[in-house]
Simulated assay, not measured.
Amino acid sequence: MLRQVKFFLNSFFSGPQAPFFLADDNGHFERNGLEVHFTEGESLAYSVPVLAAGSYDVAYGDMNTLIEMKSVDPDSSPLAVWAMHNRSPYTIAIDADGLVATPADLKGRKLVSHPEDAAWKLFPEFCAATGLDISTVSVEASDLGHDEMVPLMREGRWEGIFGFVNTVRAHTIEAGLDPDRVLRHLEFRHYLPELYGGAVMVTRDFAQKNPEAVRGLLAAINLGLKDAIADPDAAIAAVARRNPRIDVKANRARLLGTLALEMADPEGGRIGIGDADDARILAGANLITKAKGLSRVPKPSEVFDRQFLPPFGERVTSLAERP
């Protein structure tokens, strides 16, 4: 009998989640004794408190939000067990023809963000790292899609958009625009290199009661990632089976962009996709607690538990850019 696993995602079914779906379609979960049920979410940041609330076993969430949670409540439930992004995926997308070129140019500007966007939640850290006075920037919360935001930004309504680099790029394609022509990016990875991005997380209770299920889950995801790298078209087909409304071209670009950018830190060649560096987690925790005025820096072991990872020799190292 297969163990039922409830998995809360970061957004609607989309290209960067393809390794999860391909792991399912190719039987990797089933061979590890699991039947995984996916639920669409709202953002990487939002997934963390949802998992902490206890209705799900697993979530795809933001490591930085988890660090903040552990600073305030060290006994909170979620644990990161598989780091998908070894580079921060976050950005402030700007008009390629606009007046903003550096973080300092954001002074006095108006930006826009989805209400739960993880990039916006990390804006205090971005400002602390760049010397920007956060009080000089206004941010409007909007439920519009990035495909609507980008044209409106170019018309002058805003001068920057919070989001994922590859999410904004994909939605710009959906808007009928060339992201390489109309957008530039203030990428958080350049200013906040210590920060990670998305990670697979489990509840402490699920990990304690079902350690072999967690190992099986990560083994399957690892194989799903390998499958997605080998055949991106099959990966996007797995997404489209769950969300037939997706723009296949844009989501294929989004998947390939994620593999080439957000999962390509040289660290991946040293420790493999899935693992995280304790010194880097601690550096990120120090930055986050200072920027947000929190009193306690959580230990890396409170945030990330690597005991469930596949062996190093089985992890993906081929995505890493060479220094």
Results as ranks from 00 to 15, higher is better:
residue 304 F to S: 04
residue 270 R to H: 07
residue 170 A to L: 14
residue 317 T to W: 05
residue 98 G to A: 06
residue 81 V to F: 04
residue 320 A to Y: 06
residue 173 I to H: 01
residue 222 N to P: 08
residue 11 S to I: 12
residue 114 H to R: 03
residue 158 W to F: 13
residue 256 L to S: 00
residue 204 R to K: 12
residue 160 G to V: 08
residue 90 Y to T: 14
residue 171 H to Q: 14
residue 232 P to R: 11
residue 318 S to H: 07
residue 204 R to I: 11
residue 4 Q to A: 09
residue 170 A to K: 01
residue 276 A to L: 12
residue 242 R to T: 11
residue 295 S to D: 12
residue 265 D to Q: 09
residue 123 F to Q: 03
residue 195 L to H: 05
residue 72 V to K: 12
residue 153 M to D: 06
residue 265 D to T: 04
residue 5 V to S: 00
residue 268 G to N: 10
residue 191 Y to F: 11
residue 160 G to Q: 13
residue 188 F to P: 00
residue 310 P to R: 15
residue 140 E to F: 06
residue 193 P to T: 10
residue 42 E to G: 14
residue 255 L to H: 07
residue 285 A to G: 04
residue 203 T to F: 01
residue 179 P to K: 00
residue 260 A to C: 10
residue 312 F to K: 07
residue 55 S to D: 10
residue 295 S to Q: 13
residue 163 G to N: 07
residue 281 I to R: 04
residue 297 V to H: 02
residue 260 A to W: 15
residue 177 L to T: 11
residue 247 D to Y: 12
residue 213 A to N: 04
residue 165 V to P: 07
residue 70 K to M: 05
residue 253 A to Q: 12
residue 140 E to I: 15
residue 282 L to W: 03
residue 88 S to N: 10
residue 15 G to A: 08
residue 210 N to P: 13
residue 313 G to C: 12
residue 78 P to E: 00
residue 15 G to M: 11
residue 179 P to F: 01
residue 239 V to D: 04
residue 244 P to T: 05
residue 267 E to W: 02
residue 206 F to C: 02
residue 261 L to G: 15
residue 245 R to I: 11
residue 269 G to L: 11
residue 320 A to I: 09
residue 122 L to W: 01
residue 253 A to K: 02
residue 103 P to A: 06
residue 10 N to L: 05
residue 284 G to T: 05
residue 9 L to R: 02
residue 27 G to R: 06
residue 291 A to Q: 14
residue 124 P to H: 05
